[in-house]
Computed example of a mutant assay.
Amino acid sequence: MDRKERFILPITYNVHSGVQFENDIRFTLEENSMLEKIAAGGQMITDSDSFAFIYLLEDETGYHYLKFGQDVWPMLVSTLKATDEPTLQIGDTELTLNMFREELEMLIFNIEGNDNYGEEFSQAVEDAFEEILKS
């Protein structure tokens, strides 16, 4: 990294709500501070300490985090049962969260029975996504 370049810490945006109309699932953000040039990163990771799934967003400064805590896990189950990728509604802007379903499904199947994520987090995921894991 060049000395002139600044290191920008990722911003975390917490998703607390969403709506579902059949296969159309929209998560909503109340923050209006998102940069206009934000794009879907197409990758998901976990924050097992916070019991959350994190979808990566990108802009010209790097990655930012879209955090889905346990309060919205039932919506994540619905997302996996839907046929379309979910969207993120930020004011009047709508962003399709590409690869969301595939990434989330891969993670929950990887977490099942895997205490590397922490026994409590693994159990919480298994309980919340039981319907998906059994299908």
Rank of each mutant, 00 (worst) to 15 (best):
D59V: 06
Y13F: 14
M106P: 01
L57E: 06
Q123L: 12
I25R: 12
L9A: 14
F21K: 06
E60A: 14
M44V: 03
Q89E: 12
D47Q: 06
M34K: 02
T46D: 03
D59I: 07
W73Q: 01
P10K: 00
I108T: 07
E112M: 04
D84Y: 12
G18D: 02
D59S: 14
Q43I: 15
H64R: 14
L35C: 09
Y63I: 11
H64Y: 09
N114W: 01
V19P: 05
T28I: 03
E103H: 08
F51A: 13
T83A: 14
A52C: 11
R3C: 08
I132D: 06
M1Y: 00
N23Y: 04
P86W: 08
E5A: 13
G62A: 09
T61I: 10
A124V: 01
E30M: 01
T12H: 03
M1R: 04
Q20M: 04
I8G: 00
E30Y: 01
S50G: 11
R6Y: 00
A40W: 06
I38Q: 12
I45M: 13
G18R: 05
S50Y: 10
F109E: 14
D71T: 08
V125T: 03
E131N: 12
S135Y: 01
R6A: 13
E105A: 11
G69M: 03
Q123N: 10
M44E: 04
L133S: 03
T93F: 11
R3G: 01
E22A: 13
R6P: 00
T93V: 07
N23D: 13
P10H: 05
T28V: 09
L35S: 15
S48F: 04
L9S: 07
L35W: 09
R3M: 10
T28L: 10
W73P: 01
A128C: 11
D49L: 15
E102M: 05
E119R: 02
S78N: 15
Q123E: 13
V77G: 12
T61D: 15
I45L: 14
L9G: 06
L9P: 05
T28N: 11
E60V: 14
D59R: 12
E119Y: 00
T83I: 10
Q123R: 12
R6G: 00
T12D: 01
S135A: 08
G62R: 10
R6F: 02
F51S: 14
T61R: 13
D2C: 09
A128R: 04
H16M: 05
F121E: 02
K134Y: 05
N32I: 04
E31I: 01
S122A: 05
K134L: 12
A128F: 08
A52G: 09
K81Y: 10
S135D: 14
I45T: 14
Q43E: 15
E131S: 15
I132P: 07
T96I: 14
D24G: 00
L107W: 04
G118M: 04
E120L: 10
I8C: 11
E130R: 13
S33G: 05
F51M: 05
E119S: 00
D84V: 10
E120F: 09
E60L: 06
F21G: 02
H16K: 11
D127C: 00
H16P: 00
Y65Q: 11
T83E: 15
K81F: 13
M34F: 00
K4D: 07
E85Y: 03
T46H: 03
K4L: 09
T87M: 06
D24N: 15
Q123H: 06
G18Y: 03
D127K: 04
E119D: 01
P86I: 15
A40E: 13
